[in-house]
């Protein structure tokens, strides 16, 4: 041993203490993250109407109740429609803008970048309030915009679009510009090049964008709370409103359904990614 000057005890005690602390922290962090998830999952199989531990009788009763209740299934349907709309709007707008930023030089690039990213840093309360007061009284063709699903889609896009934009900008940066030039060179006009060459090259990014936008919209409830009415309210909004009155295991069922949808989306991204990997490399 060359480090004779170091006391032997300190050297041997340190790693043990270190290992114990690491283990303790690992347990803490795993428990912390999983507690609300596991509690919700367990409670959704409770038969009683009260939130109360321990659970005495297990059943799928509250799932049946959820499916049988038009109020809750309508809310779920609204959530889906709005999430799909948000995904379409924000992916289209975000991808096109990201392509413009990657491919072209133009005036005010930095200012526009900040402008597009800014809504992402705004609290949902502020965005919801702003959109609500600006479009609250507006009617088009006798139909009030306020309370419509379309308005919520656009509002949710204020968060989803910058994320898509950020993701796709980074993705576009990874593609070889020469490949795009080669397509042009072989006779493909810009639009055709974009759809036949560029988009297939970044398909994983596009799929991820669509699903992230979908998930953001599905989970969001502060803006939706400001912008929906009884007929268009989303599942998280309904959950929030019922939590304020009284919590029942039905809420746990709703939580589980929301989470399952999200994880289904995530699995889709993973599957697509694996498929692409396979396709490109053997």
């Amino acid at each position: 041993m060359s480090d004779g000057s170091t006391p032997l005890t300190r050297r041997s005690v340190e790693p043990v203490v270190f290992r114990v602390l690491t283990l303790a922290f690992t347990i803490f962090i795993v428990a912390y993250v999983l507690i609300p998830i596991v509690v919700t999952l367990v409670m959704s199989f409770n038969e009683a109407a009260q939130i109360r531990f321990p659970i005495k009788v297990w059943s799928l009763g509250w799932y049946g109740d959820f499916i049988a209740s038009p109020q809750w299934t309508d809310a779920l349907k609204n959530s889906f429609i709005i999430a799909v709309g948000t995904a379409v709007i924000s992916t289209t707008a975000g991808i096109l803008a990201a392509w413009a930023f990657e491919r072209y030089d133009f005036a005010f690039k930095n200012v526009l970048y900040i402008l597009i990213m800014m809504p992402l840093f705004m609290p949902g309360v502020v965005l919801g309030l702003g959109v609500a007061i600006a479009f609250g009284g507006l009617e088009i063709g006798g139909v009030s915009i306020y309370g419509s699903r379309g308005l919520v889609m656009v509002a949710h896009s204020l968060w989803a679009m910058p994320l898509v934009f950020m993701l796709m900008e980074a993705t576009f940066r990874t593609i070889d510009n020469r490949v795009v030039e080669a397509a042009n060179d072989l006779g493909a006009p810009p639009v055709r090049t974009f759809f036949e060459v560029v988009i297939p090259m970044v398909s994983t990014g596009v799929i991820s964008s669509v699903l992230f936008a979908f998930v953001i919209s599905l989970n969001e409830f502060v803006m939706a709370l400001f912008l929906t009415d009884r007929d268009t309210q989303t599942l998280p909004v309904l959950m929030w409103l019922s939590l304020r009155s009284a919590g029942t295991p039905r809420l746990a069922v709703a939580s589980v359904i929301l989470a399952l949808t999200v994880f289904a989306c995530l699995s889709l991204i993973m599957l697509w990614y694996i498929r692409q990997l396979r396709k490109v490399s053997r």
């Binding site: 030039e181 297939p200 396709k279």
Partner: peptide, 10 residues
């Protein structure tokens, strides 16, 4: 091109 610039997904 120097890199070949083949379309990777084709």
């Amino acid at each position: 091109f120097q890199s070949g610039a083949l379309f990777p997904h084709k």
